[in-house]
Nucleic acid binder design. Structure first.
Length: 650
DNA sequence: CTTTTCACAGTCGCGCGGATGGGA
DNA sequence: TCCCATCCGCGCGACTGTGAAAAG
């Protein structure tokens, strides 16, 4: 089979309520309802009559929200306010690091608007001014059942979204089980002019015009700049960071299936060499296995999907080709290949059957920062450390875990791996109130919240959004959304982000940040960010401790009285995030790799695991803090000196 | 030499069952 | 006394990265 050739499912699975029928016709992935489509072309030619992209781009937020759906989406109100202060996207604003505060909540919300029909969309670059954007296009297959939306850059519709068996809710686990196509983003994309019909831009007005926010984008960016790695095991390994989205713009009463597909992001085989990822031959494109993970709450109403965060925390990645048959929680990948997760939203009938009467029922969203390389063992120790620092399940590997709990129980905001709160198909209205979408007081609330004892308590926090991100505390509640048309997806994000997002000011995509207060709900890992922010522990404290052994300062203990000090809590949080952001900003391997002898770095980078007993700095390249000078760091982050030292001293 | 597999230790949530307390 | 709700502790299981061994 040739690269990019759609792979047909070996068999059709009969399920009570199939959403999609496995197709055996050419390409295998084309459904009668949706032909392959070039969303870019569509964007140029098919402006949405009701929901033009500009509407969203230039203050269209509240237009969007005023379409009768805002009430159902708690996040809409802030968004509405956002429009008032941030009417237009602009690079100047972006580069200036300006943040748009909405609702005085100081929580940023970055969005990519739906771009259909926009001239801006016609030129994706105008919307996503990735520096270094190559615009490379890896054509997809014409067999795409669920073609990607407009992919900015190289990300294009996958081949062979063939599967399609789907059952009703009760069967959901089996739905889409055999999305076996090679699922490549790059393969033979038929061209830019095909498949407009499957665009989710129906003129009926009922068609989906969704915008998707990547909830934990800052965390993804952190990983992405080091080239995210995802462990795959035979039994399946959860992703971390996991995919978590918020969706707006759906029809409140319509039913949708929401699922993630993981497709090859490029045609290369990768290997970690010289401290960096390099291509090594061609990817094996014949990999069979399930590439789709249907959200367990599918199908459900638009109101439901928009009500709260949609997390894919239970999605597992495996290299076990035999895992596709019975385990729809697992997506089968190949080690040392680069993948691109994509979110699909498909309108279905009430009983979960795809509505074949409308071709515009499918929308696909791709976030390039979600790209990762599947590995069976971590290669880049920076990634390892990030995982340890941010994944609550890896808490046991944090060196100074004990010291993190100097605060009283009330202050103990240890992020814990709670299961996804989204365990109900239809969420009772009573639950809404429990999860305010915009939680201005997320910091102040920390002390009061019981993070792990309530079904809804967990998602209120900005879970994965670490205070250590360069985006800082505000970023901790950022959400990023893209309309179905704009996808950056290029895999060139490294270049794009280099020196950009790390500043916390210049935004990737060139999108204007719309600060929205979010309750954030990271369904699964509820609150590491806030935990760290509030209690003053986390990766940074970990390193502080390490540094402290040989340095005059001591690790800063958890902020005393933090919970009882609402006045200072935000400031503290800000400080925390500010300081912590530095360490993330401190370029790890990527920049290091680029600037240091790769061979030397390789020795350092690979299997670099800091231990409390040894000076972590000795293993750390001195090039860790390119983004900030010591002075800058100390100025911005006096409390973070230890961390800075950790990465700079040698 | 690279990649994969496996057992391991550590953490924490969930669920169960028992204890406790209040009200009928 | 009985019933019900709540609290608490314990054990199990899920999950993590580690590190050594096995496989290619």
């Amino acid at each position: 089979m040739q690269l990019g050739e759609p792979v047909l499912p070996s068999s059709t699975i009969n399920l009570p309520k199939p959403f999609y029928n496995l197709s055996s016709e050419g390409g295998g992935a084309t459904s009668p309802a949706s032909a392959p489509v070039d969303f870019q072309e569509a964007a140029r030619t098919e402006p949405h009559p009701a929901n033009g992209p500009k509407k969203y781009l230039a203050g269209g937020v509240d237009d969007m929200l005023n379409e009768g759906e805002g009430d159902a989406f708690p996040g809409t109100k802030p968004a509405q306010d956002a429009r008032k202060s941030s009417p237009v996207l602009g690079e100047d604003e972006l580069s200036g690091g300006r943040r748009y505060n909405l609702d005085e909540l100081a929580s940023d919300r970055y969005f990519l608007s739906s771009a259909q029909g926009s001239s801006d969309v016609a030129n994706p670059c105008s919307i996503f001014p990735y520096t270094g954007q190559t615009g490379t296009v890896y054509p997809g297959s014409n067999g795409s059942r669920y073609p990607a939306s407009l992919h900015y850059g190289s990300v294009l519709p996958p081949t062979g979204f063939s599967s399609a068996v789907c059952a009703g809710r009760s069967q959901f686990g089996a739905g889409y089980q055999f999305g076996q196509g090679p699922g490549c983003l790059y393969p033979s994309y038929p061209g830019t002019s095909s498949g407009i019909g499957s665009m989710a831009i129906p003129g009926s007005g009922t068609g989906p015009r969704a915008q998707v926010y990547l909830c934990n984008r800052p965390l993804w960016l952190k990983f992405h700049r080091h080239q995210t790695e995802m462990i795959i095991t035979k039994q399946g390994r959860r992703m971390f960071p996991f995919l978590s989205f918020n969706i707006t713009g759906l029809n409140l009463s319509a039913h949708y299936n929401v699922f993630v597909e993981v497709v090859l992001a490029d045609p290369n085989h990768w290997r970690f060499q010289g401290g960096k990822w390099v291509t090594c031959g061609k990817a094996d494109n014949n990999m069979q296995g399930n590439k789709i993970y249907v959200h367990p709450e599918s199908p459900n109403t638009g109101a439901h999907w928009m009500r709260q965060e949609i997390s894919f925390g239970k999605l597992k990645l495996t290299n076990n080709k035999g895992a596709n048959n019975n385990n729809t929680q697992m997506i089968v990948l190949q080690s040392l290949h680069k993948y691109q997760p994509r979110l699909h939203i498909v309108e279905v009938t009430e009983d979960g059957v795809e509505d074949m009467s409308n071709e515009s029922k499918t929308q696909t969203f791709t976030f390039p920062e979600n790209q990762f390389i599947a590995v069976t063992a971590y290669q880049n120790t920076d990634i390892t450390q990030l995982k340890i620092d941010h994944n609550p399940f890896a808490k046991g590997f944090r060196d100074n875990y004990d010291s993190m709990y100097t605060a009283p129980e009330n202050d103990r905001l240890t992020p814990s791996p709670t299961d996804s709160p989204r365990s109900h198909q239809i969420v009772p209205g009573a639950r809404y109130a429990m999860q305010p979408f915009f939680q201005d007081q997320f910091v102040n609330n920390l002390p009061q919240n019981r993070f792990y004892n309530g079904e809804r308590a967990v998602p209120q926090t900005s879970g994965l959004l670490s205070p250590q991100t360069e985006e800082g505390a505000a970023a901790a509640t950022q959400r990023w959304f893209v309309g179905p048309m704009q996808q950056s997806g290029s895999g060139k994000l490294d270049l794009a982000y280099e020196g950009d997002y790390s500043t916390g000011g210049l935004l990737p995509y060139g999108i204007k940040p719309l600060p929205l207060q979010t309750s954030h709900a990271l369904g699964y890992y509820p609150d590491p960010a806030f935990a760290s922010m509030a209690a003053g522990w986390g990766s940074r404290s970990t390193y502080q401790r390490k540094v402290a052994t040989g340095l005059p300062w001591s690790p800063r203990p958890s902020p005393p009285g933090f919970p009882e000090d609402p006045l200072s809590s935000k400031d503290k949080a800000r400080e925390e995030s500010s300081s912590s952001s530095t360490w993330l900003d401190t370029p790890h391997s990527l920049k290091s790799m680029d600037s240091v002898d790769s061979g030397v770095y390789s020795m350092v980078c690979k299997r670099r695991r800091v231990s409390p007993g040894s000076s972590s700095t000795e293993n750390s390249p001195t090039i860790k803090c390119e983004d900030l000078t010591a002075d800058e760091y100390n100025k911005e982050n006096p409390k973070g000196m230890g961390y800075y030292a950790f990465y700079t001293s040698s």
